[in-house]
Design a protein around this nucleic acid. Structure first.
Lengths: 146, 146
DNA sequence: CATCATTATATCGTTCACGATGCAAATATA
DNA sequence: TATATTTGCATCGTGAACGATATAATGATG
């Protein structure tokens, strides 16, 4: 058979699988603090810079607003964020952290460290990680312009 | 703020984003032949080896059967595969290609080549791809044993 | 042989992703 | 200023993922 159609020659399958498995590894840590992985990403965006528009968050995460909107509604229902209409531009929705959402940053602080241990393997070390990051950033930059 | 909680220091976010964007790049090619990306993965498993159990397919793709079962039912409804109870073991379900499913392999042959061009970038070339594959395989092997 | 545990798959509920579409606010144009 | 276009977000429908649970067939144990 055509070797190009073999699973072992697929970059996409590797990325898809690695992404799913690493997200699964996050699950027990994140469920302790009441977040899903995509919600954790939104929180990181807001911890870095509170009070952003839906579109800003979506762009930062390379997602569409139709994915982010329901995500934010669930997070608002959980009391992590507040959504309010923009003052100057009535179309915009500004998302800001609640005190509960701000406080969660401390509880989340241990997550990257615990995950660092889980991810560390022969191929991914302090030395090799930057190169891998650069490769993935290059790929993401390339794909996001297609 | 804690730099470990910054998006730019996250391996998982890069894998998640790269996986989504590359899957999106597959979309126009796959929709032409009537497949979604996960369905394309199942087809690759079956083209390589027809007549496998649900569990074999799930294991090969690092998925759970509760993901694969509905996937296969949709693929059966589309006429790509046939599901039949195992002869010796009545619990097993054997998945085999229909003529339509087998014929699809030829139509899918162009997909990897077209995608190769879309993925090629400074960081991912004929020389660097094997190293990246090995790193991801190592990570996947590591994570799948957690 | 009866009962219990295991295995293989399926069902259910929730949360993403995302294409397509809708809608209202803002802006551009006539 | 009326109309058309664009922009920002939301809604809808479908297809994954996946934890939890169910069901039926097989295998093991008493």
């Amino acid at each position: 058979m055509d070797p190009a159609l073999k699973l072992e020659n697929q970059l996409c399958f590797r990325l898809y699988t690695a992404s799913r498995l690493i997200t699964q590894a996050y699950h027990p840590l994140l469920s302790k603090i009441g977040l899903t992985y995509p919600q954790y990403l939104v929180m990181m965006v807001l911890w870095e810079n509170d009070g952003q528009k839906v579109n800003d968050i979506a762009k930062r995460l390379y997602l569409e607003t139709n994915t982010v909107t329901p995500l934010l509604k669930r997070m608002e229902a959980e009391g992590f964020v507040k959504r309010s209409r923009g003052a100057e531009d009535g179309r915009q929705v500004i998302v800001s952290l609640t005190p509960k959402g701000r406080k969660l940053e401390q509880e989340a602080g241990c997550v990257p460290y615990k995950m660092g241990g889980a991810v560390a393997c022969r191929s991914i070390t302090q030395e090799t990680a930057p190169g891998l990051f650069a490769t993935l950033d290059d790929l993401i930059g390339h794909l996001s312009k297609l």
